[in-house]
Design a protein around this nucleic acid. Structure first.
Length: 665
RNA sequence: GGGGGCGUAGCUCAGUUGGAUAGAGCAUCAGCCUUCUAAGCUGAGGGUCACAGGUUCGAUCCCUGUCGCCCCUACCA
C-alpha cells in the first residue's frame, strides 16, 4: 500500500517517481535537476509520463530513447507503480498499481493537521451602493466567492471583505437625483426605503440613469454633484444623512442579492470610516513624509498632490522627458478632496496592518447559519473588539479596466517602503460582462449600426443599460421551475421551488465560472438560461443520479456492505482491471489536486472544468454500466463503492463552486 | 502616441512547465427511453491554432514583426 501524509495519493506517487528518477540521473549522469511529470494524452499510455529524456538529449548529445532506457534500467521499484515503459522517441510511461491505488482511496489515512498559515484577505463585490446589482457585479462576486471557497478547501485562512464606497460620486449622483430632481426630503426617502411595495434598489437604478442624462442636458447641474460630494464628506447635514440612508439601504439589498447565490461576507469596510477615522489623513502624512507624492505647482495638475508616473509605470524609458508630469496620478484634488485611489491606498495599508489605526465594528446582520457580518463604524462605544485585516496576502477582485488604478495603489505601498506587502497585493482581475447584440435586441435596447456589428455591447449603469442581478436570478428560477413542475407534477410546491432555486443558482454560478478570467463574457440570455451541455445543472444531474443509484439499491432491499471490510486489495485490483472503471476512479481521485492547481493559477474556471469532466465521465459510466442489477456480488460492491466515491468527489467540488445538490432533478 | 488583453471548428470557449493523433459545449445530421430519471448517452461532419519570421530534437504555447478587435491611458470609480 502507498504511504502518504495527508496529501493526495496521486501527488505522493508523483513525488516518489520524481525522486526515483532524480536519483538515477545523479547516479548515471551526475546531474541534479527537478524531474517533472505530465499526463499522457492517451490513457492507453499509462497514468503518468516523464519527458526528461528529451530535455537531456541535447545536453548529453545522445538519442532520447537511449537515455530513457538507461534511466529505467536499474530503477528501483516505486511503491504504487506497476511498471515503467519506454515509448515513442523516449517517453518513460508509467502505469500505476491500480489495486493499491484504489485501496488507499478506500482507506484514507488520518490527514495531518493542516496549518492555516497567514491570513489571506479577499476583497470582492465592492458595488457602488447607489443602485441595484447587475450581471457584471455577479461575475465579480461569484469569482471572488469561489476563489475563497477554493482557498478554504485547501486549508487557507481567509477573510472576506466587501468594500463600500459610500462617499463617492455615484452615491452623490443618486442623492442629487432625490434632492434636486425629485425634491425629496430625508423623511420621504426613508419612507420609500421602508415601503415593502417599493424595490428601492431598482428605483435608484432608474434615478441614477435619469440624473446622468440630466447632467448631459444641463451642464450647470454638475455643480450640484460637487456640493453634494462635499456635504457627504464633511458629514452632519441632511444631505449627508440622506446619502447614508441611501447607501445603507442599497448595501442591504446587495448583501441579500448575493446571499441568494450563497455568497457571504465577514466584514464591510466603509469609505466614510476611512475618512472620518482619519485613515486617509494618516496615510496622507505618510505619503508626504516618505516623498511618495508631491505638490504640483504647474501644468494641468497645478494645486494637486500627485504621484509621479515613474512610480507605477513599468518601463518609463522617457521618464526624464518633461511630458511625464502629464501622466502623474492625482491623489488629492486642488479643492482638497481625496480621490478614490488615495482612499484605497489607506485601505490597502490597513489590510496589511500597516496603518497603525483600526476601525470600530458593529454587527450588520447574521445569516441563517449564524455567521455574522460586521460593518465598520466610527462609534467608539461599539462593543466589538474583533480584529479584521492584518493580512499576509491580499487579493482584490476588481475588473481589469481598473488595473491602472490598482497599479497606483501598489506603487503607493512600494513608495512607502512596504515592498513585501506590495508583492503580496494581487489584483485578481477579470474582464467585463457585456451584452450580446441579440440580447440587447431582446431587451428592446436601441442599437446603433456600429453597435450591431460589434461582438458585444458594454453595460452602463449611467445609461441604465444592463441586466439586473435579481431579474436574471428570477428568470432562471422561473425557467427551472417550469421544467421541475413538468417532471414532478405531483411533488410539493415548496420542494419544487427549492429544487428550482438550486438549479437556477447552479446554472448561474457555473455560467459565470466557465469562462477564464480574461475572457470577455458577451452575456446572452439563451446561453445563460441553458441547462444542457456544459452547465451547472449537468453536473448537478450527474450527482443526483449517483445518489439515486445508492438510494434505489437500498429501497429495493439491497444491503450496503462495509466496503472497507469487503473490498480487499485483490477484489479492487480485479475490478479496476477494467479501463473504464479505472479511468473514472482516477479522475475522481484528482479533485483536490485540480482545486490546488486552480488556486495556484488563480483560475476558478479550472475547477468548473474539472467538475464538468468528472460529471461527464460519470454519466458515461451511468449509461454503460448497471450497478443495481449487477449479479456478481464482488463486482456490484466495487460499483457501489465507486458510485459513492464519485458522488462525494462531485459534491465536494460543487460545494467549492457554491452549487448545491438538489433533492431530485 | 503609451500600457494591457485578445485572435483556436459555423457560434461560444478550454488547452496545465513547450511534448505523442489540437479538445469541449452549442448548432447541424444519424441513432438510443419496457432499463439506476433522455436536464442523459453513442456516432458523423466541421481546423492553414490571424499572418510572416526566429529559437528548439520538438511551437497553439517562448521571442520579433505585421494585420485585426477590445480595454485603459480623468481633479469618475
Amino acid at each position: 500500500m502507498v504511504r502518504h501524509t495527508g496529501k493526495q495519493v496521486f501527488q505522493v506517487i508523483e513525488e516518489l517517481i520524481s525522486a526515483a528518477i532524480e536519483q538515477q540521473l545523479a547516479a548515471r549522469f551526475s546531474l541534479t535537476m527537478r524531474v517533472s511529470l505530465e499526463q499522457p494524452k492517451q490513457s492507453s499510455f499509462g497514468e503518468l509520463a516523464v519527458p526528461v529524456a528529451f530535455q537531456l538529449a541535447r545536453q548529453l548529445k545522445r538519442p532520447p530513447r537511449q537515455i530513457a532506457e538507461e534511466l529505467t534500467a536499474k530503477l528501483s521499484a516505486v511503491p504504487g507503480v506497476a511498471s515503467f515503459e519506454i515509448a515513442g522517441n523516449g517517453y518513460i510511461n508509467i502505469r500505476l498499481d491500480r489495486g493499491s491505488y484504489a485501496e488507499s482511496l478506500l482507506r484514507p489515512p488520518a490527514s495531518a493537521a493542516s496549518e492555516a498559515g497567514e491570513k489571506i484577505v479577499v476583497e470582492h463585490t465592492n458595488i457602488n451602493p447607489n443602485k441595484a446589482a447587475h450581471i457584471g457585479h455577479l461575475r465579480n462576486a461569484i469569482l471572488g466567492d469561489t476563489f475563497v471557497q477554493m482557498l478554504r478547501k485547501r486549508g487557507r485562512n481567509v477573510e472576506v471583505q466587501n468594500y463600500i464606497d459610500n462617499t463617492g460620486v455615484q452615491v452623490a449622483d443618486v442623492v442629487v437625483g432625490f434632492h434636486y430632481l425629485e425634491k425629496k426630503t430625508l423623511l420621504d426617502v426613508q419612507a420609500l426605503i421602508a415601503d415593502p411595495s417599493v424595490r428601492f434598489d431598482y428605483l435608484c437604478w432608474d434615478l441614477y440613469a435619469r440624473i446622468s442624462a440630466y447632467y448631459k442636458e444641463n451642464a450647470e447641474a454638475i455643480r450640484w454633484r460637487a456640493d453634494t460630494l462635499h456635504a457627504i464628506e464633511s458629514g452632519q447635514s441632511e444631505i449627508a444623512e440622506l446619502a447614508h440612508a441611501v447607501s445603507d439601504a442599497i448595501v442591504l439589498a446587495h448583501v441579500a442579492t448575493m446571499y441568494r447565490l450563497g455568497i457571504k461576507y465577514d466584514v464591510l469596510p466603509r469609505e466614510s470610516e476611512i475618512l472620518h477615522l482619519n485613515f486617509w489623513a494618516t496615510a496622507f502624512e505618510l505619503l508626504k513624509e516618505r516623498g511618495a507624492i508631491y505638490f504640483e505647482e504647474r501644468g494641468k495638475n497645478a494645486g494637486c498632490w500627485v504621484m509621479p508616473s515613474s512610480a507605477f509605470r513599468e518601463s518609463g524609458g522617457a521618464a526624464t522627458e518633461a511630458d511625464s508630469e502629464e501622466d502623474s496620478k492625482v491623489i488629492v484634488r486642488s479643492n482638497g478632496t481625496v480621490t478614490y485611489v488615495g482612499k484605497d491606498i489607506a485601505y490597502q495599508l490597513w489590510k496589511f496592518g500597516l496603518l497603525g489605526r483600526d476601525f470600530h465594528y458593529r454587527p450588520l446582520l447574521a445569516y441563517p447559519d449564524g455567521h455574522q457580518v460586521w460593518v465598520t463604524t466610527e462609534d467608539e462605544s461599539a462593543p466589538d473588539t474583533r480584529r479584521f485585516g492584518r493580512a499576509g496576502k491580499v487579493f482584490n477582485v476588481i475588473d481589469s479596466r481598473q488595473s491602472y488604478l490598482q497599479d497606483v495603489v501598489v506603487a503607493g505601498l512600494r513608495a512607502l517602503g512596504f515592498e513585501e506587502q506590495a508583492q503580496s497585493s494581487v489584483h485578481f482581475s477579470y474582464e467585463m460582462v457585456a451584452l450580446s447584440p441579440r440580447t440587447c435586441i431582446e431587451m428592446g435596447i436601441e442599437l446603433s449600426k456600429e453597435d450591431r456589428r460589434r461582438p458585444y455591447v458594454e453595460v452602463s449603469g449611467r445609461k441604465g443599460l444592463g441586466v439586473k442581478a435579481d431579474d436574471l436570478i428570477d428568470k432562471l428560477i422561473e425557467t427551472a421551475l417550469a421544467e421541475v413542475e413538468d417532471r414532478h407534477p405531483d411533488d410539493s410546491p415548496d420542494v419544487r421551488r427549492e429544487v428550482a432555486g438550486q438549479i437556477a443558482v447552479g446554472a448561474l454560478r457555473y455560467f459565470m465560472l466557465k469562462f477564464t478570467r480574461n475572457s470577455v463574457i458577451a452575456f446572452d440570455f439563451h446561453e445563460a438560461l441553458s441547462f444542457e451541455g456544459e452547465t451547472g445543472p449537468y453536473v448537478q444531474y450527474a450527482t443526483v443520479r449517483a445518489g439515486n443509484i445508492i438510494r434505489k439499491f437500498v429501497d429495493r432491499g439491497g444491503h450496503l456492505p462495509d466496503f472497507e471490510a469487503v473490498l480487499t486489495a485483490d477484489v479492487l485490483a480485479r475490478c479496476f482491471g477494467n479501463d473504464d472503471l479505472w479511468q473514472l476512479l482516477l479522475l475522481a481521485s484528482k479533485a483536490d489536486s485540480a482545486i490546488e492547481r486552480a488556486v495556484a493559477s488563480g483560475e476558478p474556471a479550472h475547477v468548473a472544468k474539472y467538475a464538468f469532466q468528472l460529471a461527464q465521465a460519470f454519466n458515461n459510466f451511468y449509461h454503460g454500466t448497471s450497478v443495481i442489477t449487477e449479479d456478481v456480488e464482488e463486482r456490484r460492491n466495487v460499483l457501489l463503492w465507486l458510485t459513492g466515491y464519485v458522488r462525494s468527489q462531485l459534491l465536494g467540488t460543487l460545494k467549492v463552486l457554491g452549487i448545491e445538490q438538489p433533492l431530485y432533478m
